[in-house]
Amino acid sequence: MTWQLLLSACVSGALYAVIALSLNLIYGTMRLLDVAHGEFVMVGAFAGYFLVTLLGVPPVLALLGAFALNGLAGLVLYQWLFAGIIRRARSTESLESTSLLVFFGLSVILQNGAALAFGGTPRAYERYARIVHVGGVAITGNRLVAMAACVLAVVAVLVFFARSTWGLAIRALIANRDAAAIVGIDTQAAFRLTCVLGFGLAGYAGAVIGLMQPVSPFMGGQYLMIGFVIIVLGGVGKLVGSVVGGVLIALLETVGTQLTGPNYRDILIYGTFIAVLLLRPQGIFGRHAA
């Protein structure tokens, strides 16, 4: 029974890692307080849903399609909105509060726009429904595919950031934006890439969720909270921290609700958030105090 729980935690952990990674990219690199991230996940979920049901795209390709669509949307939003905000911001705090409000507005527009366009009822599609046996435990095919897709994405992202030049450039920006500009890194181009990656991954995660669960316009909020809790836990800007944090939170959620009850899920997660803030605000991998 415990292995079943652990496998379930693995599936959630991989998903949360992708979501937290994407949010960390947006916030850690550009200091944009993306409180609409849950809605970007939702948009990706709907994109995946429509790709599969309307266009008949195989779900695995639909994941990439959602990534591309969301990445494109992120790029457009960057050019249109975020570039101006970042340029005009006098300080990190004012950037954070301005972007906060802009993203807050965006989240409302996306949520209600989706509700207007698609209606509030959840929609689902069914693929890979066959049950697979891994070792001694059973798991449905779609959850296995979901987990594999997320693990693949996380590995790809981490390798990209560890090895490639642009990955290095973005890490430099995370570490110290002004210094990165001084040594000749094209900040604008790096931000554009970050937006594509960050929002694209959010869409990817959303499409993955669509593999496992119904999609609805208001599904995003919980993923936003989980994303930020993981970021606080792992450390802002620490990409590995997001992955580790994602797994930890998933374990906490699965094991915790098993021990206490499904109603306590929110309390456990928020409790972790507050505990981290009280005990170690910079997160597990963070270096300086918040």
């Binding site: 909105l81 101006g84 905000i85 301005t98 409000l101 802009v102 807050f104 507005g105 965006l106 989240s107 409302v108 527009i109 209600n112």
Partner: peptide
Amino acid sequence: LGVLLIAFVL
């Protein structure tokens, strides 16, 4: 409301 919020913030 969302549009107004963004417009006024900017």
